[in-house]
């Protein structure tokens, strides 16, 4: 079994409202798994079921091949979207308390906290109250509290909200580092550029149903349209463009380039290879730019959601 977390046919109702309908996901060990979906799709419900905050009506969740049990909370670190800390409690005390709730011993928690405080350049905050910190500073503490107990599975719900770009990068690097150290990450977000950057697997949930999942790269292959961005330099652009349009399907291009006279998106029929196009183009003009259009996570998200 190479999956750290498996959810099988999970369903959940709230009264008449169906929050999750027969959703299954498999999160491979050591991956960063993007859990995507529009607002109210059911992501948070699924995450809460994994965290044993809510119980599923039907279906099972397995962690490391075994059915989820109460002690598994020690193996999970969860950073909810709605997050906060006790405002009038001191940073150190609070972190110790939360770590102990996750089953750490006091000494161990202290040592780890020291390590993390140095790592994230948190100096003498130990005796400060949360309400004396800025929002970004409090978020750092929250991040530390989430990862402190070395969980196998980390669940981040919109981890970058509230961070400035510098701290967001810092946190992103920490997440990648944690993955290097063997943690598996479930990552729920609306920000597609961070999905692009971080995730290697994704699942898309829409209206309580899972409508797409798999390796990001495989999904991109599925969604590719055999379209190429073409940038040419020539004296006689009109003639060249019309000759291309005779043989290939041409779409308007939006890519940015420095000095091409002609910018086109060329869509190839199934039996035509990219080399055919390239050799045709080189015979007509000087090729400066030739790239396959890879569908962005954003496009895939919007397309799939609209189709359903």
């Amino acid at each position: 079994m190479n999956n750290l977390l498996v959810a099988e046919n999970v369903s959940k109702h709230f009264g008449d409202f169906k929050a999750l309908n027969d959703v299954s996901i498999a999160v491979p060990k050591g991956s960063i798994f993007g859990l995507l979906g529009p607002n109210g799709a059911g992501k948070t419900t699924l995450i809460r079921i994994i965290n044993q905050i809510t119980m599923p009506d039907k279906g099972k969740v397995y962690l490391d091949g075994e059915a989820l049990k109460p002690t598994d909370i020690q193996n999970i670190g969860y950073l909810p979207e709605e997050r906060g800390l006790y405002k009038s409690m001191k940073v150190g005390e609070q972190a110790l308390y939360l770590a102990q709730l996750k089953g750490m011993s006091k000494q161990d928690a202290k040592a780890r906290l020291k390590y993390w405080f140095e790592r994230l350049e948190i100096g003498d905050w130990w005796n400060k109250k949360i309400q004396e910190l800025s929002k970004g500073q409090a978020q750092k503490i929250q991040f530390i509290v989430t990862v402190l107990h070395r969980p196998k599975l980390l669940i981040f719900d919109e981890p970058f909200s509230g961070f400035d770009p510098i701290n967001a990068t810092l946190i992103k690097d920490e997440i990648l580092q944690l993955r290097e150290e063997g943690a598996t990450v479930i990552f729920s977000t609306h920000r597609m550029e961070s999905v692009e950057e971080l995730c290697d697997h994704i699942a898309l949930i829409h209206r309580s149903n899972k409508i797409l999942d798999g390796k990001l790269i495989d999904i991109k292959r599925q969604f590719k349209t055999n379209t190429f961005e073409v940038g040419l330099q020539t004296q006689d652009s009109e003639a060249v463009v019309s000759s291309i349009k005779e043989r290939f399907e041409v779409l308007p291009a939006t890519f940015k380039n420095l000095n091409d006279d002609i910018k086109l998106n060329v869509k190839l029929a199934e039996n035509v290879s990219s080399n055919d196009l390239l050799s045709f183009l080189t015979s007509k003009a000087e090729v400066h730019h030739f790239v396959e259009v890879i569908p962005s996570a954003n496009d895939i998200f919007i397309q799939t959601v609209k189709r359903n």
Partner: peptide, 17 residues
Amino acid sequence: IEEKTSRIIEVIISSVK
């Protein structure tokens, strides 16, 4: 109510019943 308004509740509740 304080735990609700400070939004810490979900963190706590993911650790204890």
